[in-house]
């Protein structure tokens, strides 16, 4: 299941994480988010991207995530139309199959992380976009 590929290493919600470049449409400079009145959990609001509204993830609504205090430096525009605010961009990297292992049971990010990748001395969580979107839909259904 663990593919060789390109990964974007970034920091968000207090941790470094890996985003698949296959899921990534582009990385743009963040613009102010218009908060949604009565916003659904998990979505901070919307920004205009290429003439359309793009929902922006609210990290603070996800379990185990720190609420961002500063202004994000970038917005990752993902497939399935979701914007993910990033606090820091580290760079892209390739990881071989041997670098990956299962997400630890006690990792609070497990619901939307499908593996951790060894980068240097650290295990970085790999965001699974499909799981994240499903979680956001579940939040909405549970309201």
């Amino acid at each position: 299941m663990f593919d060789r590929g390109s990964w974007l290493q970034a920091r968000a919600a207090g941790r470094d994480l890996l985003l698949s470049t296959l899921d990534l449409r582009e990385v743009v400079t963040p613009t102010p988010v218009s908060p949604l009145p009565g916003r659904p959990r998990g979505i901070a609001g919307v920004v205009i991207h290429q003439g359309e509204f793009l929902p922006v993830l609210s990290w603070g609504d996800l379990p185990g995530c720190e609420v961002g205090t500063g202004t994000p430096v970038a917005l990752a525009v993902m497939r399935l139309r979701l914007g993910i605010p990033l606090d820091r961009l580290v760079g892209t990297l390739d990881l071989g199959p041997e670098a990956w292992r299962e997400t630890p049971e006690d990792d609070p990010w497990r619901p939307w992380v499908d593996a951790v990748g060894r980068v240097g001395e650290r295990d970085l969580p790999r965001l699974d976009l499909d799981r994240l979107i499903t979680l956001l839909r579940q939040f909405r259904g549970g309201r």
């Binding site: 009145p37 009565g38 509204f53 979107i133």
Partner: peptide, 25 residues
């Protein structure tokens, strides 16, 4: 009026329009 993507649906709001003074819901 532009429709909101599925993830940004909020009850009672059918869409939005960017305006000079911010978003009009």
């Amino acid at each position: 009026l532009r429709s909101l993507p599925d993830l940004a649906h909020s009850r009672g709001i059918m869409g939005a329009s960017p305006q000079e003074d911010g978003t009009l819901w």
